[in-house]
Design a protein around this nucleic acid. Sequence first.
DNA 1: TATTGCCTACCTAATGGTAGGATGTCAAGC
DNA 2: GCTTGACATCCTACCATTAGGTAGGCAATA
Lengths: 188, 188
Amino acid sequence: MEMKKRILTSAQKLVQQRGFNGFSYADIASEVGIRKASLHHHFPTKTDLGVALLEVYSGQLDSELKRINGLLLPADAKLAAYVALYRYSLQAECMCLGGMLATEALTLDAVMLPGLKRFFARNTEWLADVIAEGGSHQLFTLSGAPEDHARVFLSALQGALLIARVTGDCAAFEQTARLLITDLLGKG
Amino acid sequence: MEMKKRILTSAQKLVQQRGFNGFSYADIASEVGIRKASLHHHFPTKTDLGVALLEVYSGQLDSELKRINGLLLPADAKLAAYVALYRYSLQAECMCLGGMLATEALTLDAVMLPGLKRFFARNTEWLADVIAEGGSHQLFTLSGAPEDHARVFLSALQGALLIARVTGDCAAFEQTARLLITDLLGKG
DNA sequence: TATTGCCTACCTAATGGTAGGATGTCAAGC
DNA sequence: GCTTGACATCCTACCATTAGGTAGGCAATA
């Protein structure tokens, strides 16, 4: 069980940094110190590995969202905590695993797609809840439906991460994130 | 010269759909009806092809932006015209070439990176100009610097394209784009 | 005659994946 | 307590395919 986790950890980093088509079993093998063929014992095919990665990553997201909920913060602070998840990715030169797989979607085995869609749905739903909460507390001034604001927020963070990782402009990422939240706070 | 253009056209579509690591010279060869080895006559290495693709794509962007400028539209309509560029990509199941390469940046030859950064800089600059123009005409109510709004706009569109392409939810893309513009228009 | 554009034929390295064997662990049966 | 069998984990060795790329030739064209 421990080796399986190490494989998943290594593979997750590789996917987030290089993409699903940008790494091989040989890369994982050399990282975890096991022979390439032995990896197939744990994950018979690369697609199996991909499906497992999506599961793990969705689980990580869920626990992060639950942790943030547990902090009992005002909505804007919850969003800031959500932004922090992307900041950590950026610092590790990692894309969001969902965003990375999304760009490669047309090359992936179809069995990976439902998990991928669910990942984005989960993000959107949580953000919509937080934004709706901020709206009903008169903390946010919403110009549209919470779901629409949620989609803008999610899209912008994915895009900002994508761009900042290649430009190396972390300050731009921070500014983008800040403006996203202050614009929700409205014209106070 | 004509074959070179056909190769570039084919390669561009392949990159935008499958990523730079998601296609091979064999794919292009079968599309343009030429032998794989002959491609190396036009583009000795895949990196050469990548650099050329970035040049072509940046040129396409430039002419589109100039065309939009020439329409002499109000700023919000210019942004809508800019959004249309992404809509066309989405309809063709294509990512933005810049966005696609950005995710794969860590696997690309370094000579491709400057062109990639310039691409994003060009987008941001143009958007900032349009948004500043809308601000100075009291069409937009800006809560931050035009460059910051530009980055939010660009990031959100890149992310929305990324997500919509995998969820298949074109309506969500449209709603996101609309909200981005209406939020700039302010609280009229 | 030199160059362009394409060809066939080939190369090396890497890809995801398989077959079958060695070692270890662990519980059931006597 | 000891054996036995089942299963898990890892190994070496191998496979077919594909990757990007090279060498050298042939025909057209300028």
